[in-house]
């Protein structure tokens, strides 16, 4: 019982991270119909920019960033770092789209994929240079105090065990929820959102209707990158041992988030959120109850199973092609 509850808690926290990243994939895919392989690298940038800013700003509030057990700074510092990372990554997202993807707008989609891979390689290896972020993992200084909000003692086989719910987990779930609701509002209730949906529905027709397609695509990229940056920031909060930018862990994180987007029905904003939680649940409960060796297998096996039953994902609508 205790272990079940603990695993459920982890699922919620990890699931909301997956969901945030999956949203970026799904939005770009919805409009440009290509897998943005560089998206996971934006997450990395978000995490490492937050780290660098924290290192700079800690002395300003009289704390030692190099002491791993230093107390947490005031909350506004964390919030401003989050905003700064989001702004920086949006700009980077804009630049990438402008110079690496836009020139290929008329080329086959697969070819954009290759530039995406190139951009991803570039970001990884630039980040790994010693004067950038370096090749070693670093400790993200704690931005939130390590407070336990609840510690429940639940009965379990072999005695009672504690279920620990920390401030960090609640903060992650809360921030993600706020961002997702904001996105939902943006996409379905504003003019820009309407334009995005129009472009995603039919690019050429919306251009004819006077929608500035290029600008809308830029907005979409910036929005996706902003969510990725937020995910990177929260990721660094939850897992303070930050892996170096070229580590395979980030690729796998991006891959799983993409799987989440596909499971939910790619191009579907709500589907991406649902997919994120489904993936996290399968991963965490599979690793706990079955075997931790096959953790990645559960994710991909579920993906294949779902796609074979519902080829357009859980919430995706089947698009009937007219000839």
């Amino acid at each position: 019982m205790a272990d079940f509850a603990q695993t459920l808690m982890t699922t919620l926290a990890v699931g909301s991270l997956y969901a945030l990243i999956a949203l970026g994939y799904t939005m770009v895919y919805g409009i440009l119909k290509f897998i943005n392989f560089a998206h996971s690298d934006i997450v990395v940038l978000g995490a490492w920019i937050s780290f660098t800013l924290t290192r700079w700003l800690f002395p300003a509030v009289g704390l030692d960033a190099h002491n791993p057990d230093s107390p947490a700074p005031p909350l506004w510092l964390g919030a401003s770092i989050l905003i700064a990372a989001v702004v920086a990554c949006s700009l980077i997202g804009f630049v990438i789209e402008r110079f690496a993807y836009r020139p290929l707008r008329k080329a086959p989609r697969l070819n954009v994929l290759i530039t995406a891979i190139g951009v991803s390689l570039l970001l990884q290896n630039l980040g790994q240079l010693s004067f950038m972020f370096g090749p070693s993992p670093q400790k993200m200084p704690a931005l939130l105090s390590n407070v336990e909000l609840w510690r429940l003692s639940l009965p379990s086989s072999g005695g009672a065990r504690n279920v620990v719910i920390g401030l960090v987990d609640v903060m992650i779930v809360g921030t993600s929820a706020v961002l997702m609701i904001a996105l939902e509002f943006l996409v379905f209730r504003t003019k820009i959102g309407t334009a995005m949906r129009a472009v995603s529905y039919d690019l050429e027709a919306s251009a004819l209707m006077g929608i500035p397609v290029d600008r809308i695509i830029s907005y979409t990229f910036m929005l996706g990158s902003a969510l990725a940056a937020a995910a990177g920031f929260l990721y660094a909060l939850k897992y303070p041992g930050l892996n170096q930018p070229a580590h395979t862990t980030w690729v796998l994180l991006g891959l799983k988030a993409f799987v989440a987007a596909v499971i939910g029905g790619i191009g579907n904003v709500r589907g991406a959120v649902l997919g994120g939680f489904v993936i996290a649940a399968v991963e965490q409960f599979g690793a706990y109850y079955l075997s931790s060796s096959y953790r990645d297998v559960y994710v991909f096996a579920l993906l294949i199973a779902i796609l074979l039953v519902r080829p357009s994902g859980l919430l995706g609508s089947t698009v009937r092609e007219k000839v």
Binding site: V14, R161, T249
Partner: peptide, 21 residues
Amino acid sequence: QAYTEGDQDFSAQLTAIRASE
């Protein structure tokens, strides 16, 4: 319990280890 290099979340494995005391 196993993990894969670069995994960030070990809660499932550690929860299982905790149960084995």
